[in-house]
Write a protein that binds this DNA or RNA. Structure first.
Lengths: 245, 245
DNA sequence: GCTTTTAAAATGTCAGACATTTAAATGTAA
DNA sequence: TTACATTTAAATGTCTGACATTTTAAAAGC
């Protein structure tokens, strides 16, 4: 980990990479303390600010945490599911917003992944998961709900569906897919009519999961995907029309 | 974006968050140039090193890129699929290695997600995708292949299967799941017998995809998941035995 | 023996300087 | 006029040294 050849990249980037490699490869284990900034500066033969920039890079990826005071320092951080969720969502959201990903492609990916969970969800759902889904369905039927709140409730519903698979790795992977869609979903104006239809489909999904009927749940998800697509296309068409006028 | 109240967090973290918010919210668009470090230091009323630490945090997340020289500076970076892949894989790998995720759970998640792609892959696979899959199958049959190379080839095969869905968002989401499994897979010693079985299943998958038979592909993937699990359990059992002696 | 004080070690922040890189502006010659 | 070389300015990258703040452990005092 000591070496640091004179590449073209920034020193702080090289140092960050060297430490990152040591962590990822397992040379440094969770909660192990890194040398102090001064010692690292000596080892890599750079100044302390340079070392600090490297450490901040690692902190941004939740690879290390720092603690002030005597016997403080930088420690290898145990990446929690929550932190991983967060990074996953940030990355996915940016990827979608910056790459002009079409609604269709994003939608297809999201529902395909979600359907991957349904067999497990139907098998393992607890009363808790079902209760969350029912509660969100109920909320979605409330007429005074804003479009934003409706979308947020939608996300909660689908996350409950995913969490019902009782596989944290799956939940982590899906978090990005579901949450990253929210900005795109927020562009849709949900009429009373369309909300009714969505609530109907959500109810079918919840029923199917409660009955441990994976096939029915998948079918309902397919229909929900198709319906979401038609809604999005209507919005796009209306927008196009407005622009032409 | 200017404000920066006296919270408890580090100044560099606060500044990074403020800029991050501006980017994610769309206040700053791709390729827009941030103020120079000196100007940012003025705006936030901190020193230049503090600003630099904040910028390095953002650079670590690929949110900005920096360019030296006149008319250089920090620019909002367009997050490419490649960069997103990379971060996804790093995060997933760490999450698995640091959280004592059981092989079973990770394996279940991976194959569940992969099965989500198969209907699309069977429908849209190009000759290119099929050729990659066949080539990797052929390589896997070579007796001189090391276990590491065998695993690497396995990853390439499965990525081709995923890419065949022709949905970049899906590919991005799956990259983490497939690659993050590699360290776990590398723990398995593949006997000639087990390689033969895996090659057989891979061939069945490729055949099914070529025949646009999604159902057969899913079934083969199910069997591959089950077989992978038995292999892993054998390894664990053998390890347990060795330890007891 | 318990509490308080003190000291030390580490990160967080600042100021100023210099090095390096890069592209535009300028100048010069064909 | 155009092509090429030179200069210059703006920005990031890096270094040095210092001080502030936080936190813990050890020392001092009762």
């Amino acid at each position: 980990m000591k070496i640091d050849p004179d590449k073209k990249a920034d020193l702080s980037a090289q140092i960050a990479q060297a430490i990152r490699d040591a962590i990822v490869s397992g040379d440094m284990i969770v909660d192990e303390r890194l040398p102090s900034e001064a010692e690292l500066a000596d080892q890599f033969e750079v100044s302390r600010p340079t070392v600090r920039e490297a450490l901040k890079r690692l902190a941004a990826q939740s690879l290390i945490r720092t603690q002030r005071g005597a016997f403080g320092g930088a420690f290898v951080n145990k990446l929690s599911y929550e932190e991983a969720y967060g990074q996953q969502i940030t990355t996915s959201t940016l990827l979608l917003s910056m790459n002009a990903v079409s609604f269709d492609v994003a939608c297809e990916a999201r529902y395909a992944l979600e359907r991957a969970c349904t067999p497990l969800s139907a098998e393992r759902r607890t009363p808790d998961h079902l209760a969350t889904m029912r509660a969100e369905i109920h909320r979605q039927g409330h007429p005074g709900l804003s479009d934003e709140s409706f979308c947020a409730s939608d996300v909660t519903f689908h996350r409950a569906l995913v969490d019902a698979a009782c596989n944290p790795v799956l939940s982590y992977q899906l978090a990005g897919a579901v949450e990253a869609m929210q900005p795109l979903m927020n562009m849709i104006t949900f009429t009373a009519r369309s909300r009714e239809e969505i609530v109907r489909l959500h109810t079918r999904i919840a029923d199917a999961v409660e009955d441990t009927d994976a096939q029915a749940a998948e079918t309902a998800l397919h229909e929900l995907e198709a319906y979401t697509l038609t809604l999005a296309r209507d919005v796009m068409a209306a927008r196009q029309k407005t622009r032409q006028v």
